[in-house]
C-alpha cells in the first residue's frame, strides 16, 4: 500500500513535469505575445517600445532559459509577476481558488446528492413512469448547454423576483455566500448529476442482475438492504471514477458558468490570462489545475479500496 502510494506520487511528479513542459512550450508556439496584445489597446505598435517590453519581461531569452527560471522560481515559492496587473501571480491567484473551489464543491455536492439516489431509484423502478420521467430529466441535463441554462435562470430571476443571482461583490456572511453560489452550482450540478444518475442507473441494473443479489434476496434480506448494502456498494466503482473526473473538469472547466454568473473564479481568470498571453499567470494556473487533477485521481484510486475490499494495490 505504502509502496503503491509512493509509486503514484513519483508518477505524479513525472506527469506534472510533462504538463509544465507542454504548457510552457505550447504557450510560446501560439501566435501573439503580451507585447502585441498590450499594444492592441493602444491601437498601434511601436517597434522600439515593443522590443523594450519584450526585453523587460525576459521574453527575448531562449525558451529553455525561461523555463529554467520559472521552475527555479517555483521551487523558491516565487511564481513571478502578472504581465497585465504587474502584481505577484500568487496575489492574483490565491483569492480566486477558494471561489472556484466553493462553486465546484457545491456543484459536486448537488450532483452526488441528486445523481446517486435518483440513479438508484431509476434502476430499482426500471421501466416505470418514474424511471421514464427521471431519464427524460437526465437527458435534458446532458443536452442543455450550460450558458443557455444559466441565462434562462438569470432571466427567470429578473422576471419573477426582480433580482439577479450574480457575483458582484464579496459576500459578507456564510448564508449570503451560499445563496450566491447555490444557483450557479445547481446550474452546473444539473449536468453532472444527470451524468452520475445515468451511470448509477446502468451500473445498478447490471449489479442487480448478479447472482449474489439473487442469493441475498433468497436469504430473505429486505429490499433496502439488498439495494443499498449489496448492490449499490458494488455499483459505485464506476460512479466514483466519474465523480473524480467531474471534480477535475469542474475545477478547470467552469468558464461558462463563471462568465454567465460573473463569478471571478479560476476558470474565467485562466481564459482571460490566455487571451492576454499572460504567461506566468497561465503557466501557474495550469500547473495548479494539473495538481488538483492528479491528486483527485490518486484519491479516487485510494477510495476504491474503501468501497470494495477485494481491491488491494499490492507490490
Amino acid at each position: 500500500m505504502v509502496a503503491y502510494i509512493v509509486q503514484r506520487l513519483l508518477l505524479m511528479v513525472l506527469t506534472l513535469f510533462g504538463v509544465s513542459v507542454a504548457i510552457f512550450v505550447l504557450l510560446r508556439i501560439v501566435p501573439g505575445n503580451i507585447a502585441d496584445i498590450l499594444f492592441d489597446s493602444a491601437g498601434l505598435i511601436d517597434p522600439a517600445d515593443k522590443a523594450k517590453i519584450i526585453s523587460d519581461l525576459g521574453l527575448d531569452r531562449s525558451i529553455p532559459v525561461q523555463y529554467a527560471q520559472w521552475i527555479n522560481g517555483l521551487f523558491h515559492g516565487d511564481l513571478g509577476y502578472s504581465y497585465v496587473s504587474e502584481k505577484p501571480v500568487l496575489d492574483e491567484i490565491l483569492p480566486r481558488i477558494p471561489i472556484t473551489a466553493r462553486l465546484a464543491g457545491l456543484a459536486l455536492f448537488f450532483s452526488v446528492m441528486f445523481g446517486v439516489p435518483l440513479g438508484v431509484i431509476s434502476a430499482v423502478r426500471q421501466n416505470t413512469w418514474l424511471d421514464y420521467g427521471l431519464r427524460v430529466i437526465s437527458l435534458s441535463g446532458l443536452s442543455l448547454p450550460a450558458f443557455w441554462l444559466g441565462l434562462l435562470i438569470l432571466m427567470a430571476f429578473v422576471r419573477w423576483f426582480g433580482t439577479i443571482p450574480i457575483y458582484d461583490r464579496v459576500p459578507e456572511s456564510f448564508l449570503q455566500e451560499l445563496a450566491l453560489f447555490a444557483i450557479p452550482a445547481a446550474a452546473v450540478g444539473f449536468r453532472s448529476s444527470a451524468l452520475i444518475m445515468r451511470l448509477t442507473r446502468s451500473s445498478m441494473l447490471e449489479v442487480l442482475r448478479q447472482d449474489y443479489v439473487r442469493t441475498a434476496r433468497s436469504k430473505g434480506m429486505s429490499e433496502g438492504s439488498v439495494t443499498f448494502d449489496h448492490a449499490l456498494r458494488n455499483a459505485l466503482l464506476p460512479v466514483i471514477t466519474t465523480i473524480g473526473i467531474e471534480t477535475a473538469i469542474l475545477f478547470g472547466g467552469l468558464i461558462v458558468t463563471e462568465t454567465v454568473f460573473n463569478i471571478p473564479g479560476v476558470a474565467r481568470f485562466l481564459v482571460e490570462a490566455i487571451r492576454w498571453r499572460d504567461y506566468p499567470m497561465v503557466q501557474n494556473l495550469v500547473m495548479f489545475i494539473a495538481i488538483v487533477v492528479v491528486t483527485v485521481n490518486l484519491l479516487v484510486d485510494l477510495t476504491y479500496m474503501l468501497v470494495d475490499p477485494r481491491i488491494r494495490y499490492s507490490e
Binding site: 441565462l151 438569470l154 432571466m155 430571476f157 429578473v158 426582480g162 433580482t163 439577479i164 450574480i166 458582484d168 462568465t259 454567465v260 454568473f261 460573473n262
Partner: peptide, 12 residues
C-alpha cells in the same frame, strides 16, 4: 453582455 443587461434591468 446578456448578464450585464439583465443585471442593469434588475436594478443591481
Amino acid at each position: 453582455r446578456s448578464t450585464a443587461i439583465l443585471a442593469f434591468v434588475s436594478g443591481r
